[in-house]
């Protein structure tokens, strides 16, 4: 439980290569959004600008990391029958923390993300990792898995957010991207744009997979 054990576990698992694999797999081979198609709701809903997408991705990654650590720590103490309920309670606790944290850092950002911060609780990705990975593996491995999946998720959200903001708003992180007379593709900012952009990215991923 102490920091000490966490660190030894963390560094020990970095040393043998199969564990570094846990980190890499979430980024690319088992990317939660593009390959597993998990946690779609926030992916589509808050990816209308690059900034929102990045903030949402990082918030999710944080919750994923903390809940994976705790679930993995408690994996031998939680009875099988009530495990899902326990996981959800653990996740809900961290989400409440993140919610208040974001509110403290930037009220504007909190307003932009709205209820979707609270909705991290029901992101299937987090519960999925708790159930499929953290409940069966050591703390070090679970941390790596959470980091990989978290960054993979953030990366995917960022890909969507960037495309939607550049085409729909003509800007990137709020900075104008195109010359004055660029006609914005309003549809990209609208809900439908989210579906289309995600479909396009999945198409690219499928094409890449078929080739390689």
């Amino acid at each position: 439980m102490s920091n000490q054990t966490k660190h030894t576990g963390f560094f020990a698992s970095l040393e043998n290569s199969p564990s570094t694999n846990e980190f890499i797999k979430g980024l690319w081979r088992e990317n939660p959004v593009f390959v597993q198609v998990l946690g779609m709701c926030p992916v589509l809903a808050v990816s209308n600008t690059a900034e929102n997408a990045l903030a949402m991705g990082l918030a999710t990654a944080f919750v994923l990391l903390m809940s994976n650590i705790l679930v993995s720590t408690l994996r031998n103490f939680i009875p099988k029958q009530v495990r899902i309920a326990s996981y959800i309670l653990i996740i809900a606790t961290f989400v409440t923390m993140v919610d208040y944290l974001i509110q403290a850092i930037s009220v504007d950002l909190h307003k932009a993300l709205g209820a979707f911060i609270s909705l991290i609780v029901v992101n299937c990705l987090i519960l999925g990792r708790a159930e499929a990975f953290a409940s069966k593996n050591t703390i070090g491995k679970s941390m790596l898995d959470a980091l990989g999946m978290g960054f993979g998720f953030t990366f995917a959200l960022f890909c969507l957010g960037a495309v939607r903001e550049i085409l729909g708003n003509g800007s990137f992180f709020g900075i104008p991207f195109f010359p004055e007379n660029f006609q914005e593709w309003v549809v990209m900012i609208l809900p439908a744009g989210g579906f289309f952009t995600l479909a396009m990215w999945l198409l690219i991923f499928n094409a890449a997979k078929n080739k390689g």
Binding site: V37, V187, L190, P191, A192, G193, G194, F195, F196, L198, A199, L202, L203, N206, A207, N210
Partner: peptide, 21 residues
């Protein structure tokens, strides 16, 4: 073949979403 599955569903969902506007 490349569009089959999730991609196709997402495209249809996008069109449905447009029409609901």
């Amino acid at each position: 073949g490349i569009v089959k599955g999730t991609v196709l569903t997402l495209l249809v969902a996008g069109i449905l979403s447009l029409s609901f506007m």
